[in-house]
Simulated assay, not measured.
Amino acid sequence: MANKLNLIGAVTQALENELAEDKTVVVYGEDVGVEGGVFRATAGLQEKFGEKRVFDSPLAESGIVGTAIGMAINGLKPVVELQFMGFSYPAFNQIVTHVARMRNRSRGRYHLPMVIRAPYGGGIRALEHHSESTEAMYAQIPGLKVVIPSTPYDAKGLLIAAIRDPDPVLFLEPKRIYRAFRQDVPEESYELPIGKAKIVKEGEDVTIVAWGAMVRDTQAAIDMVKEKGIDPELIDLRTISPIDRETIVESVKKTGRIIIVHEAPKTLGLGAEIMAIVNEKAFLYLEAPPTRVTGFDTTFPLPKGENHYIPTPERIAQTIEKVVKY
């Protein structure tokens, strides 16, 4: 049986499913318990599962992640929420020094089945540190998986897979589309494979790779160029660490062109790594230079500047036309 859920509802249902099915799962973080989270992703869970399994933490990100490490080593499966991705930096030391290294450090004796959830990206007219999109920084850390869903169906399946994964996962939720649309989502538990991209739309003229909220904007751009006879292929990366290299390379071999769309700054963003993958594995198939549509190399602007910073469907559509006509 399926319900029509938005992305935030799918996250809530995933957490509820796993709390009910696995007594070792605990959910905590900043305002997660009584208030149900700043975006209400955990609303009602404390009432249902009790204060020992869903609870508030001090406003101390390093402490939140640090305690989760101890819990995970000792048999629990903590799912912690940091209110915004920009608040993850105080916990960066714990993530890099311990979370991502524990399996390697202990030569496989210990592993950390833990999930760090964080709303990420801009578009909600928030304050400083509330609109970060620095996923590439975390994707470079060996031992840490980084997952970004773009739909309610994917959000539930990927979050359940992340909770059940024996290793740590950073689960980034594009808050701009938390309540943007609804989709049929099964009530029962299901998993989607971490590390596998999804071909959202097949096409022949150009490969477009996107993730998070940018998938929806890219779909709007594809609708714009459809009238001009352009047929793009859209790949939702879903997992940015590990990257599904095979799906990207095979698509580029078919289309001969690639555009990467991301909200993060351009320099050293994930788009550069994807371009390198294509250059290494599909260079002789290229008919146009690999191209990026991204945010800018500046701090994310305050509300009045958001619409100038985040890639728009219009900017994506213009790039599609330019690359196809090259």
Results as ranks from 00 to 15, higher is better:
residue 177 I to Q: 04
residue 177 I to E: 06
residue 178 Y to M: 05
residue 179 R to G: 09
residue 179 R to A: 11
residue 180 A to G: 09
residue 182 R to M: 11
residue 184 D to N: 15
residue 184 D to R: 14
residue 186 P to S: 12
residue 187 E to Q: 14
residue 188 E to I: 12
residue 189 S to M: 13
residue 189 S to P: 07
residue 190 Y to R: 11
residue 191 E to C: 13
residue 191 E to H: 07
residue 192 L to A: 08
residue 192 L to D: 05
residue 192 L to I: 12
residue 192 L to V: 11
residue 194 I to Q: 04
residue 195 G to R: 07
residue 195 G to K: 11
residue 196 K to F: 10
residue 196 K to S: 14
residue 197 A to C: 13
residue 198 K to C: 15
residue 198 K to D: 15
residue 200 V to H: 09
residue 201 K to P: 07
residue 201 K to V: 07
residue 202 E to K: 14
residue 202 E to H: 15
residue 202 E to F: 14
residue 203 G to M: 10
residue 204 E to N: 15
residue 204 E to L: 13
residue 207 T to R: 06
residue 208 I to R: 04
residue 209 V to R: 01
residue 210 A to L: 08
residue 211 W to V: 08
residue 212 G to C: 04
residue 212 G to Q: 02
residue 212 G to K: 06
residue 213 A to Y: 00
residue 215 V to H: 05
residue 215 V to F: 02
residue 215 V to Q: 04
residue 216 R to L: 15
residue 218 T to Y: 02
residue 218 T to C: 05
residue 218 T to G: 06
residue 219 Q to K: 13
residue 220 A to D: 15
residue 221 A to M: 08
residue 222 I to G: 00
residue 222 I to H: 03
residue 223 D to H: 13
residue 225 V to Q: 03
residue 225 V to T: 03
residue 227 E to C: 09
residue 227 E to D: 14
residue 227 E to K: 15
residue 228 K to Y: 13
residue 228 K to N: 11
residue 228 K to L: 13
residue 228 K to T: 13
residue 228 K to W: 10
residue 229 G to A: 09
residue 230 I to N: 02
residue 230 I to G: 00
residue 231 D to T: 10
residue 232 P to S: 07
residue 233 E to F: 00
residue 234 L to C: 08
residue 235 I to A: 00
residue 235 I to T: 05
residue 235 I to N: 01
residue 236 D to P: 03
residue 236 D to V: 01
residue 236 D to K: 06
residue 236 D to T: 06
residue 237 L to V: 07
residue 239 T to D: 04
residue 240 I to P: 00
residue 241 S to C: 11
residue 242 P to Q: 09
residue 242 P to L: 10
residue 242 P to W: 06
residue 243 I to H: 06
residue 243 I to S: 04
residue 245 R to E: 14
residue 245 R to P: 02
residue 246 E to M: 12
residue 248 I to D: 01
residue 248 I to F: 05
residue 249 V to L: 08
residue 250 E to D: 12
residue 250 E to A: 11
residue 251 S to P: 03
residue 252 V to F: 01
residue 252 V to A: 04
residue 255 T to W: 05
residue 256 G to H: 04
residue 257 R to P: 00
residue 258 I to Q: 00
residue 258 I to P: 01
residue 258 I to V: 13
residue 258 I to H: 05
residue 260 I to N: 02
residue 260 I to W: 03
residue 260 I to L: 09
residue 262 H to N: 07
residue 262 H to T: 06
residue 263 E to N: 03
residue 264 A to N: 02
residue 264 A to E: 06
residue 267 T to F: 12
residue 268 L to T: 12
residue 271 G to M: 00
residue 271 G to R: 05
residue 272 A to N: 10
residue 273 E to R: 09
residue 273 E to L: 11
residue 274 I to L: 15
residue 275 M to K: 11
residue 276 A to Q: 13
residue 277 I to K: 02
residue 278 V to M: 03
residue 280 E to A: 10
residue 280 E to T: 09
residue 280 E to N: 09
